[in-house]
Design a protein around this nucleic acid. Structure first.
Lengths: 140, 140
DNA sequence: GCCAATTCCTACTATTTTACTATGTTATCT
DNA sequence: AGATAACATAGTAAAATAGTAGGAATTGGC
């Protein structure tokens, strides 16, 4: 639900992978181009891989490429992988509290709705769209 | 943008204030009813007061009441006060990076859009609505 | 088969944020 | 005057964030 550097770095790195169109790109190249901390990105890329956003090719001349077309990768996918936000709606109210009747209680439902709303929006933002916007902005 | 206990506690406390319909309620009462840490809530209430969500009456038989009708207080107001999220879209990319051309750059625009979208949604959720939902849930 | 380049894996660490506690001061009602 | 409240500020423990560090496993090229 929150946007930290994990999301920012992931998006910037994924764009770098995306523009190489299927050719594996090494982390070294990615981080050099984007000025990102290499060892930190290793960990983020491990998460992105587990969530099937990227595919890795180990060994010399290896690297990473997108696991599927950039138009089929959205911000929800990326944030779900990068941030650890497997969201669990939570309310610390005790059951004897009249506000917290029901399971989930009214407040938990509220957080849930909020999360679903955000998720829905993030799903509409694809990596391809972001790449297109950057191309537009840079070509002038 | 993120939901911590600050928001949860604030909402629960504000509901407690709201149901007393204009009569000042002391923090002691609020925290006893909702099982919230009193000294911590003092700090949160200070923020809510600064953002004109509540009004305080010091001294004996003092307390807090809503600064305006519950239907005119929304989740955006509350979260803006409770969490310190005066959102500043941020991208650590350097200007020589082709992704980061423009000010704000494409990514900053993305974070901004996200934030505005969320903000718009939070504005539609009023304290009154939440109170009504709880009343519904508890009356059976 | 060896070496270099790469991903993979795990542990450690510094900084920041969160979620409080502690101690006192000031204001108001009776 | 005394009780009851808000107000103010400082400290603190635990968690999350944002990294570093060191090496093991995998693969391509010579």
């Amino acid at each position: 639900m929150q946007i930290t550097t994990k999301t920012e770095y992931s998006v910037r790195a994924l764009i770098e992978v995306g523009i190489h169109e299927g050719n594996p790109v090494s982390l070294r190249e990615i981080c050099a181009a984007q000025q990102l901390p290499e060892k930190y990105m290793e960990q983020l890329f491990s998460k992105l891989k587990k969530k099937n956003i990227i595919i890795s090719i180990p060994g010399a001349h290896g690297g990473y490429r997108l696991a599927r077309d950039a138009k089929d990768i959205n911000m929800q996918n990326i944030m779900d992988a990068a941030e650890d936000n497997s969201y669990q709606p939570y309310c610390s109210g005790k059951p004897e509290n009249e506000f917290c009747i029901g399971n989930p209680c009214v407040l938990q439902q509220l957080w849930q709705d909020l999360h679903l709303h955000m998720k829905g929006y993030l799903e509409t933002l694809t990596l391809q769209q972001i790449m297109d916007r950057i191309k537009e902005a840079s070509h002038g």
